[in-house]
Amino acid sequence: MLEARLQTGALLKKVLEAIKELITDANFDCSDNGIALQAMDNSHVALVALLLRHDGFEPYRCDRSLALGVNLVSLSKVLRCAGNDDIITLKADDTADVLSLTFENTDNDRISEYELKLMDIDSEHLGIPDTTYEAVVQMSSAEFARICKDLQVLSDSVQIDVTKEGVKFGAKGELGSGAVTLKQNGNVDKEEEATLIELQQNVSLNFSLKYLVNFTKATPLASRVSLSMSSEVPLLVEYKMEAGYIRYYLAPKIGE
């Protein structure tokens, strides 16, 4: 059985907000390591990999591995019934036909209990090879969200060019073109806002902005984001949390 108590329930609400528009149904794979999820979007262009490590919960107990098949829209609706400061406890027994959710307020005088029906999901699990990327950009997650949203005004796609001087996001469309360049600035006072680049080789890649904008729904989870790129392989957009991560992989657009 699974029992996982999350002191900051808001984290789970934010996680659901970050994935529910990309994926409809997914298995939460629970093991003694924690709760993991991997799923592709419906059009098989993007992949989401989520990990909530066991040490993010107190207590965390999972005697044997369980796959909890969840409709994410339904789960996020139920999670909207939890207060932002509530402690959230997830429970499922080994038959795993329902997921029990308990929300306790901080004064511990209001306890709400919900049960969500689970479903059998026959999902493909993809093996993600360890990759050494040609370029890794670490930057403010809010800045990344702003750039994606701004450039979406101009085009469906963005060209990302990384050199040792900086990273340039450019878009061209019917109404014109636009570009935002962030210079590498590791010495700025505000560490949270610094743009840092690790570069083996310059890269220039094209990606769909619609997906990137969707990924930025994870912005409330982390102040920093990393973009890992190599020629003609999927972009990795990673938001690190205190006890886990959310990683989005996006297949590039190739050719003219």
Partner: peptide, 14 residues
């Protein structure tokens, strides 16, 4: 325009 590639062409099914 550039063509969108499927993510499945990069990662194998396990």
């Amino acid at each position: 325009a550039a063509a969108q590639v499927s993510i499945k062409s990069f990662f194998h099914t396990v």
